[in-house]
Amino acid sequence: MRERLHGRSGWVIALLVGVLAFAITVQWRQAEEADDFSGVRGAELAELLRSLDATNARLTQQIDDLRASRDDLRDSNESTAEAREAAIRRANALAILAGTVGAEGPGIEISITAPPGAVTASVLLDAVQEMRDAGAEVIAINGVARVVASTWFLDDDAGVRVSGRVLKPPYVMEVIGDPDTLADAVTFRGGLADRVESRGGTVEIEKRRQIQVTAVADAPEHQYARPASED
């Protein structure tokens, strides 16, 4: 039997085994670099393609969803920022009105020099009224008393009591508003200037492009009043 493996038939067997080894080697290498789909059957390729299409459609859908929600978020962010800005503007306006923050801007400075007792609370109150009439936005007296909605004036032995604070002459009013209009409101016939001068005092007006009011009003704690609910 052994000798059958030699001779002509032995070579035929060797050839077949060689072909097999050759095929295995080639196929081995092929399988290692089988990243391409050349060895895949048509039906499998179609299946692969279909699943890729499905995945693609799903991911596209997901992209659209995410993009939409991103746009939504961006919109709401913008409107939030707008609302915030509006709220800040409103808060600033209200803070100036309530006198809880310092203020600056063009305006006039009125210095009232008068003998003791000549300038009473009613004179100061009238002056404040005239200033408001002329469009004053911020008024402070002697740099300490900010005139706001709840400010009150009362005659006192030493001078004038403004919202509980005693002010002594000379009085200096810092008023923020249109300087020319404010100055006219002081000097018109029968106005503040006339009134003080008739009592032996003097009024000086200085128009300034920049007045800084640092006095702030005490923010009142309301004991009785509550905001009426709007809804």
């Binding site: 493996l5 030699h6 032995g10 070579w11 067997i13 060797a14 050839l15 077949l16 085994v17 060689g18 072909v19 097999l20 080894a21 050759f22 095929a23 295995i24 080697t25 080639v26 196929q27 290498r29 092929q30 050349s38 060895g39």
Partner: peptide, 25 residues
């Protein structure tokens, strides 16, 4: 002799590095 064929086949496959035609794959 078959061992010679085996070695020769592997050597040929490694040396020639042929690609299988796509029709035969």
């Amino acid at each position: 002799i078959p061992v010679i064929g085996l070695v020769a086949g592997i050597a040929l496959g490694l040396l020639l590095q042929p690609t299988v035609p796509s029709g035969l794959q």
